[in-house]
Nucleic acid binder design. Structure first.
Length: 484
RNA sequence: GGCCCCGUCGUCUAGUGGCCUAGGACGGUGCCCUCUCACGGCAUAAACCCGGGUUCGAAUCCCGGCGGGGUCACCA
């Protein structure tokens, strides 16, 4: 059977890097096995969900090239199991909740949020312990409505009626193996809030079932809620999917990568910083998963090699240096035309709007690929080559454009003017030629040329540098230095 | 703190009882290449959390300790 997997983000902010990896791994799994990748928006947290966030997540996924087979923005209501936004199927959750209630597997709890909160507080106070430790002290919420069935005319929430027998409840996890705990450790978790909106554990189970999801791959932080969900599957008599709980991505301080404390948690930040989408994918796919000693994968190789069973168990730490190294690798590896196309928005961003993917840009990409860590850097490096004229750095001029330097420059100009064609391969040898003819060191020849052409002391090889500039602009800049 | 998960170089990892004097990658260090800056090449330092078992033999299996993380909501 072809797997049906899903990525079910909550639209409460930008696309999180951990979410992106979860999406990627699920997507890869589906693609390799010819399965289906579903995107579902879990927008039941009405306080925090926003349309902007939905957009940000969709944009982030698209930028990464992770496409979904079912979900938002697709024809025919998004696919065969709509809707793909939880808030659009509230009725369905109520239906299931009612069924559970009628079967005695759930109940209406008229206790208010304030009351339950107070109960916790009182218990903690009576034991003289902080609230998060009430569980160890034996606190377990027991609703006075647990065994009642009457329907009152006031707000209620629906709780799952967990039957604790002391038996183990658990599941087979693809990365962890058998995971279980005594069902007594679970409680009557809330299915429906007082306003009728489902909570995560409920909506998630109903949807995964309705959408016929076969494999649920998500972060390890969900392990504990999975036990509750398993109880629900059993109560409903539904077949549960195969679970796979992924290790977490931690910030460099060792804490879980959070939106507040770690700017790098935002996929959009990397886009802004000039990271290639594929580089981000490659970096993130290796964080917690490996294929022998392989480090770099094309998209096709990722699909070919990825398997949920090869996912590791240990949390990984975000390593910006390795991300950069991965980015450099792909900048150097992808065809110049492709990098050039990716570079256009970054050039436009800094005012170079006349650039297009042509011979000049490709030459520039080739020249700067080994020198740029990011597309932002590359764009900045290339920008001067699209300008008319250049301001020569004073210190550089003093050092390299003295009388001797200008003499070399003039000589170079003569040789350049005599060239049959203006290409890097044609230009490059002139430094050697002049060196041989005059006996001067190459540095004495190349540096004056470089300073005159770029205004500074560093640039790619003379051939590439002048080729990028073009004949006219090169000579113009030479003349500006030589005067008259 | 209860419960749950995890524990190989600084980091990501290979490793599934002998192939391990523990391999690769990023980062670090040194050297080489060189018209500048890079790229690249070569070399090098650096780890099996600790303690008990099991076994002829353990990074690999078991137990305990320690350490890290997650989770304990009418968030997801």
């Amino acid at each position: 059977m072809k797997p049906r997997v899903r990525f079910a983000p909550s639209p409460t902010g930008y696309l999180h890097i951990g979410g992106a990896r979860t999406a990627l791994w699920n997507w890869l799994y589906a693609r390799r096995l010819g399965g289906t990748f579903v995107l579902r928006i879990e927008d039941t947290d009405q306080k925090r969900s926003t349309p902007e966030s939905v957009q940000a997540i969709l944009d982030g996924l698209r930028w990464l090239g992770i496409d979904w087979d079912e979900g938002p923005g697709l024809p025919n209501n998004g696919g065969p199991f709509p809707p793909y936004f939880q808030m659009e199927k509230i009725k369905r959750y109520h239906e299931i909740a009612e069924q559970l209630i009628s079967e005695g597997k759930a109940y209406r709890d008229y206790t208010t949020a304030e009351e339950t909160a107070q109960m916790r507080k009182d218990f903690a106070a009576s034991k003289g312990i902080p609230e998060e430790r009430i569980r160890e002290a034996g606190f377990k919420y027991t609703s006075p409505w647990r065994d009642k069935t009457e329907k009152l005319d006031k707000p209620y929430l629906v709780r799952f009626k967990l039957k604790a027998t002391g038996a183990k409840i658990g599941f087979e996890d693809l990365v962890h193996g058998r995971l279980e705990k005594p069902d007594e450790d679970l409680d009557d978790f809330v299915l429906l809030r007082a306003d009728g909106i489902p909570l995560y554990n409920f909506g998630c189970v109903v949807d995964d079932h309705d959408m016929q999801i076969t494999h649920v791959g998500r972060g390890q932080e969900h392990i504990n809620s999975t036990y509750s969900q398993v109880a629900l599957y059993q109560a409903l008599g539904w077949t549960q999917p195969v679970f796979a709980h992924f290790p977490l991505i931690m910030g460099q301080n060792g804490e879980k990568l959070s939106k507040r404390k770690h700017p790098e948690a935002d996929v959009g930040v990397h886009r802004k910083n000039g990271i290639l989408p594929h580089a981000l994918l490659n970096f993130v796919v290796r964080l917690g998963w490996s294929h022998g000693n392989d480090e770099y994968f094309t998209r096709e190789q990722m699909i070919e090699f990825f398997d949920l069973k090869d996912v590791g168990k240990t949390n990984g730490i975000w390593n910006p240096k390795k991300l950069t190294a991965t980015n450099e690798h792909w900048i150097k590896t992808f065809p110049p035309a492709q990098i050039g196309a990716a570079l256009l928005p970054y050039l436009a961003e800094i005012g170079v709007s006349d650039a297009k993917v042509d011979a000049k840009l490709e030459t520039a990409v080739k020249a700067f690929a080994p020198r740029a860590k990011t597309l932002v850097e590359m764009a900045a490096s290339i920008k001067p080559y699209y300008a008319k004229g250049v301001t020569v750095d004073a210190a550089a001029a003093t050092k390299h454009l003295d009388d001797a330097g200008k003499k070399m420059l003039a000589l170079a100009k003569t040789k350049l003017l005599a060239l049959p064609e203006w290409t890097a391969t044609a230009i490059d040898p002139i430094v050697d030629v002049i060196a041989t003819e005059t006996g001067a060191k190459k540095g004495m020849i190349a540096q004056p040329i470089r300073v005159a052409a770029t205004g500074g002391t560093t640039s790619p090889g003379i051939g590439d540098t002048l080729a990028m500039l073009g004949k006219d602009e090169t000579i113009r800049r030479f003349d500006a230095v030589l005067g008259g």
